[in-house]
Amino acid sequence: MHFSPVPLSWYLTLSAILFVLGVAGFIYRKSVITVFLSIELMLNGVNLTFIAFSYQLHRIDGHIYSLFVMVVAAAEAAVGLAIILTVFKNRGTLQIDEVDTLKL
């Protein structure tokens, strides 16, 4: 079986695209949940970069890092969603621009 190789830069490009999509989502979406999802999208993009570089360097440290990213993402999701729940209970909205009282 012969597998034709793929340049690693393609992976990096993909991850860049995903990351930028995530950023775009963060900036342009108005629902708190979608913004959260965009963050996850960014994290995924970064994870792909980690793993791609892991391949590049032939070291698995990148895997570990992306594992940590995942774990942190999970924790973040738990807390974040709990916050969203609370916010929704308190204010009855999920519009991100409506939640702007946390300022000086």
Partner: peptide, 17 residues
């Protein structure tokens, strides 16, 4: 600088970007 902290999370994101 406090004006930057508008409470608009999307603005924060833009600043981070």
């Amino acid at each position: 600088l406090r004006q930057l902290q508008s409470g608009r999370i999307r603005n924060y994101a833009t600043w981070v970007l």
